[in-house]
């Protein structure tokens, strides 16, 4: 073989092997994703189709007959006092948890961020509730808030006020659960804010000081708040999604008594306790629509995260 025909031969060889390599790679790729793809069909796609199908029937688990009812389940939901109450409760819960869970977390993050030696300690203290099993901690809260033997009411009495029936006064049930929700989500949001704060270049604060931002309020509004914008947006959305999924506290504290159902708890009762499968499927779709709107909003914002 001479030096001149050598390159020609190799290009021909690669051209014919290229398609073979491609085919082999495609087969390998398909083999690699096959388990995940099958599971995706079994766990996500088929159930979604079945769910949509259930939602237009009167199917009850174990029943022998099944009848197509159109959108009747959805209209029934609108007239269902329990569902509407659960919906209102969940919205109330979210409306309390979101502002407090987000802005308290921002405040704590700002304070923690500037501590040098004690920062790790505060991080642990505030993050501990995030890792704890909520079912167990809700039981502890039940005890803490007990009207006669709980320390919280003991403290209230010591200050000279009437004891508060946190877990038996129907008006206070949702706010009490929201308080526990804030307690649990605070550390999580704090860590997200801390990550956001770490990403702010120090130069900007220095430039702001030279530009005449004398007091911390000016520096906060010139630098911190606008640059944390995307982080705040993200924290608000994740907090709302988790607020709409509130379940454990209800299951432990009230089991839905005194009109304290939330969306998910109501869904659980209809679908799994009362076996109203068709109706529960319609409720599930409503629940899913709410979560999807929030998630899509979040995804859109994530894409624009680098909007500067």
């Amino acid at each position: 073989m001479t030096a001149t025909d050598f390159p020609a031969e190799t290009t021909m060889a690669t051209a014919s092997s290229r398609s073979r390599t491609d085919r082999r790679m495609a087969l390998r790729g398909l083999a690699f994703v096959a388990p995940a793809a099958l599971l995706l069909i079994a766990i996500y796609i088929l159930p979604m189709i079945v769910l949509a199908a259930f939602s237009v029937t009167d199917y009850q688990l174990g029943a022998l007959s099944i009848r197509f009812v159109g959108l009747q389940n959805f209209t029934a939901a609108m007239d269902d006092d329990v569902f509407m109450r659960a919906f209102a409760n969940t919205v109330l819960y979210a409306v309390i948890v979101i502002p407090f869970g987000v802005f308290l977390a921002l405040g704590v993050a700002l304070l923690v961020y500037n501590r040098k030696r004690s920062r790790a300690f505060w991080e642990v203290a505030y993050f501990l509730p995030v890792t704890a099993t909520l079912v167990a901690m809700a039981t502890v809260w039940q005890f803490l808030l007990h009207p006669s033997i709980g320390p919280v009411n003991a403290a209230i009495k010591w200050f000279g006020f009437e004891p508060v029936a946190f877990l038996s006064n129907p008006v206070l049930l949702i706010p009490t659960m929201a308080m526990i929700g804030i307690w649990q989500v605070l550390g999580f949001n704090m860590v997200l804010f801390l990550a956001g704060l770490t990403a702010i270049p120090k130069d900007l604060y220095e430039a702001a000081r030279l530009d005449g931002a004398r007091n911390p309020i000016d520096r906060f509004f010139t630098v911190t708040w606008p640059i944390l914008g995307p982080t705040t947006m993200f924290v608000v959305v994740t907090t709302s999604i988790s607020a709409f999924k509130v379940f454990e506290t209800v299951a432990v504290l009230t089991k839905g008594r005194f009109g304290s159902e939330t969306l998910l708890f109501n869904l659980y009762l209809e679908g799994f306790e009362y076996s109203n499968t068709g109706y529960a499927a319609a409720l599930t779709l409503i629940f899913l629509a709410i979560v999807l709107i929030l998630s899509i909003w979040q995804t859109v914002h994530m894409d624009r995260k680098v909007h500067y």
């Binding site: 130069d203 030279l210 010139t222």
Partner: peptide, 16 residues
């Protein structure tokens, strides 16, 4: 720094 009436140009420019 805010009272010294100095202007600074940073290496990173530090634009908001």
């Amino acid at each position: 720094p805010s009272e010294r009436n100095l202007a600074m140009v940073f290496q990173s420019y530090a634009l908001y």
